[in-house]
Design a protein around this nucleic acid. Sequence first.
DNA 1: CGGGCCTTTGACTGGTTTCAACTTCTGTGG
DNA 2: CCACAGAAGTTGAAACCAGTCAAAGGCCCG
Lengths: 190, 190
Amino acid sequence: MSDKLFQQIRKFIDLSANDELVVNKYINTLQLNKKEFLLHDGKVCNDLYFVEKGCLRMYFINKKDSEQITQFALDGWWIADYMSFMNNTPSNYYIQSIEKTEIVSISSQKFDDLLKELPHLEKYFRIIMQKAVAASQHRAKLMYEMTKEEFYIHFSTSFPEFMQRVPQYMIASYLGLTPEYMSELRKKKL
Amino acid sequence: MSDKLFQQIRKFIDLSANDELVVNKYINTLQLNKKEFLLHDGKVCNDLYFVEKGCLRMYFINKKDSEQITQFALDGWWIADYMSFMNNTPSNYYIQSIEKTEIVSISSQKFDDLLKELPHLEKYFRIIMQKAVAASQHRAKLMYEMTKEEFYIHFSTSFPEFMQRVPQYMIASYLGLTPEYMSELRKKKL
DNA sequence: CGGGCCTTTGACTGGTTTCAACTTCTGTGG
DNA sequence: CCACAGAAGTTGAAACCAGTCAAAGGCCCG
């Protein structure tokens, strides 16, 4: 069910068996097949999503009417449009499964209630958010210092298994380059 | 002293006069003149910094031996190299004042101690981090969807007062364009 | 008042995108 | 289980956004 989530929480704070029961009152679990949506443009991002197993992508539609991927979420990652989530404003993003995926979700209302009932979970989420900030600082640095070619090589050597798992055009989009150019880079490196 | 910090904390949680005294045991305040450093390459980022008043920049040295700015921090913002802060690993960044600046700082050790003594501050920091994640999602989206020219126009119209406050070459660096190209864009828009 | 840093200008270059056409893969229905 | 339509990936030519380099001008601060 939501084993990986509890396992992860326990990496950062103590969580009693009873706490676990409490958490279970607030969360939902859902099973997604390939290409199912958790969020789409125009809707408020009412939930935080935790990937138990599988893979999600987050994207928006750019001016040229094509999908621009901004994030992937793999096992053990939380994902949401946080701006929309916090302010209850409509999102411009889509969140969609790339493969069969198990999700734990919690609505913003229940998130508040849960944290009221179990305040020591604040620490877990504070750490998770802190890690997310660290990760985005790191990613921003990479994008500043690397050319597209270097960024592609960096990514493909850092996450070779991931390259197998998702279609090329999605990786190209995430890396901010065209499928055509990525194809050229690929050829060059084989 | 650290008025703005307490004021900000109270926007998100209750903070008693006594809590305030406790916090004061853990934090430091410091006054910086222009161009003083809080962090430099090779050093561990041992503190979180809160800008009471003034302006900081965070940058690293790229392959071409020039400064690449990744973040600014204005009044009311927290800044740190979170990767270095959390893992106690050496940073590749510099954090430096751009003008006369008042800072509140807290070391990672004292940060932990403070949160142990006042656990309900976890909520404040959770929210701060969550906002930081939201902001970086937003920034990433802008960088994906805009050309450099659009990004420059967006930035200069969104923060006109800031444009006056810091040298052009720093803004160019932050926006990821050369001073020469930015100069060209400027001319075009006047 | 002078030196060095910041900004501007213009010519040239190249990394990356765009477009269009072609090939290969994949999944769905008959 | 095969066929075939649409999706994904490749190729090559042309165009362009933005960087590089070099040199001159402006301006701040000691």
